[in-house]
Design a protein around this nucleic acid. Structure first.
Lengths: 88, 88
DNA sequence: TATTCATATAGAAGTTTTGCTATATGTCAA
DNA sequence: TTGACATATAGCAAAACTTCTATATGAATA
């Protein structure tokens, strides 16, 4: 949840990322770990879970792994949840 | 999730409840436990969690505790989730 | 009032989750 | 090709979750 929230405001939350535009390319795992004050391997695992769930895409470029939300997948999940619980 | 799904179709899932209309009054914990094939105390705890979360209301009448979804709360949760994650 | 039935609470066991440290792998630059 | 940096994997410990059995409480009836 917190990672998805951070990535929502990537532009403002990670304005100090210099290697690539945080919004267009994504945010690298290091910076996310820093922001969350969690160890890098911990975040690496969470990222992997989010990736396997389809909620983010991870694009490796050079030595960085850029993470970006998959807005379509998130929207579809929201709809699935609504449907499954029949929320009006 | 499964309890909320069961209560969604209370009328059809618990048509054999004779003490009260499952849709209008709610479904008693016993029948939910039976349906889920879980022990009564297990379901009792889940019900308590759902109640504290505000997703269901539990109305005690005589010796039964009738559980009903709170559609407004569920809808609000869906919206909160959408908002929090900024899902378009 | 004693019994029966529905539910709640207590306590314990097994599993899953979440975090860490240590270390391996991948990638680039000197 | 070696060193430095980003990420991944392995292994472990603590905490949380999920379920159970045993038992207590609440409510109605014989």
């Amino acid at each position: 949840m917190e990672i998805l929230r951070l990535l929502r405001d990537a532009k403002q939350q990670f304005s100090h990322q210099e290697t690539a535009d945080p919004e267009a390319f994504g945010v690298c795992i290091n910076l996310i770990a820093e922001k969350l004050k969690l160890a890098q391997p911990t975040v690496s695992r969470h990222i992997d879970i989010l990736k396997r769930a389809g909620f983010i895409t991870v694009q490796r470029y050079q030595k960085w792994s850029y993470c970006r939300r998959d807005e379509t997948a998130l929207s579809e999940y929201r709809d699935w949840l609504s449907e499954t619980l029949s929320i009006g």
